[in-house]
Design a protein around this nucleic acid. Sequence first.
DNA 1: CAGTGGTCTAGACCACCCC
DNA 2: GGGTGGTCTAGACCACTGA
Lengths: 245, 245
Amino acid sequence: MGTTPVETVPEPKYWHLKTVLSEALDSEFAVGQVLPNERELAARYGVARATLRQALEQLELEGRLHRRRGVGTTVAPPRMGVDVAPEAGARPGAPGDAWRTEGCALLAPGALPAAVARLLDGAEGPVHAVRRLRTELGQPVATEVLYMPAALAGEPAGTGAARGSAVLRALHRLGPDGQDRSVELGSVPAEDARRLDRLPGAPVLVVTTRYLARGATVAVSAATYRADTCRLTFGDCGAMDLLAG
Amino acid sequence: MGTTPVETVPEPKYWHLKTVLSEALDSEFAVGQVLPNERELAARYGVARATLRQALEQLELEGRLHRRRGVGTTVAPPRMGVDVAPEAGARPGAPGDAWRTEGCALLAPGALPAAVARLLDGAEGPVHAVRRLRTELGQPVATEVLYMPAALAGEPAGTGAARGSAVLRALHRLGPDGQDRSVELGSVPAEDARRLDRLPGAPVLVVTTRYLARGATVAVSAATYRADTCRLTFGDCGAMDLLAG
DNA sequence: CAGTGGTCTAGACCACCCC
DNA sequence: GGGTGGTCTAGACCACTGA
């Protein structure tokens, strides 16, 4: 009689709680509505606050909730689709450009992040670093730093944001004929956190782009997108034959 | 004398700890090496175990660490680049195909996930759901479910994996001439967790693809990639000259 | 079996927002 | 000031791994 009846797989409390809350969000809450505070929710479900928070963190990771210190927890709208197609934002100042150039610095080769230096393989000499901020629907969604060897950028005029725009124009003038890009998960560094209106460590999608001209790398950019509010969309990469035909 | 000397911004302990550990990983540890256990690390740095764990979770999110229950915490290798180019894996059984078809089910329209039903807009009637698993370097990296309306798939032969492959061949035969894809952050559902050798809730990159033929959606796939080990790479979607010229 | 990471608790204090 | 979420603690027990 020692037969084990069924394979009892005790589901963690926070996981079950997440499911329960998720269903409650679907059926009983509207977008933007504020939830009861954490202490009350924990009491209501009979768990410690830390356990409740583990469930909320999961839901926030999935983009279902927004939590703001001093304010409360609200139901998040569905993630917005953010276009990351090859040409998007490549032309500063173009109508509908979602990017705002914030500044520009000239870095010595040794001052480059290791990953960037690796992608700009043959590069020697100083490198322009252009910082941009992307805003969508009145909300900051991404920061980017674009690196371009000074030798390729000519003599960008102006200072600050104006100089940054000049570097971007120089890149565009080169007529890059291809890109490599990759997407990975990261956590927002402290310096970017305030710009994106998030706490340090919040999850972000890091999009690394390599701009190619005649087979050589002419620029590299690293953009960090808020993972909670953004769904990255890639234009129709496969439709080239459609257009060409 | 009440002058506040500098603007003291107390950095959270776990954040500082993460920085310290990150530097230690760079300088004192090799890939694959196991770290001291959590209780010892916590004692060594004079923090509670929960605080230490918060720092470790950050580092794991960034792909720097691997943690396995019953085993320990090890230094992770750099993330592998996983190709997500439009045609990759579209041909089951092709040489070098990283995907293994696991099975196939026929779903009633009402049984579809809401997000999938929305993308398969005009679809009526049952839908094939093909499940695949992607392995890279001997390690499972992604699971995928591909949805294709039965009306478009003909009469796929066989059962299980064989039937799934037949559906994929039918899709390939249609000659889809374009794709939409998007990437967002998610957490691995319980059923996929074991397949990917992760615990439920682990972060994943969800790649949603819409296959188009003559402007109509002929299939939709949702693939979940392990965010800790994968860096998604997109081939040269380029062709900026198409638009710039 | 001993050792690891994973879960959970009950409580405290802090930083921030808004009134 | 009062309320929110964010950080931190010290402890307990559980699930899993591998010798």
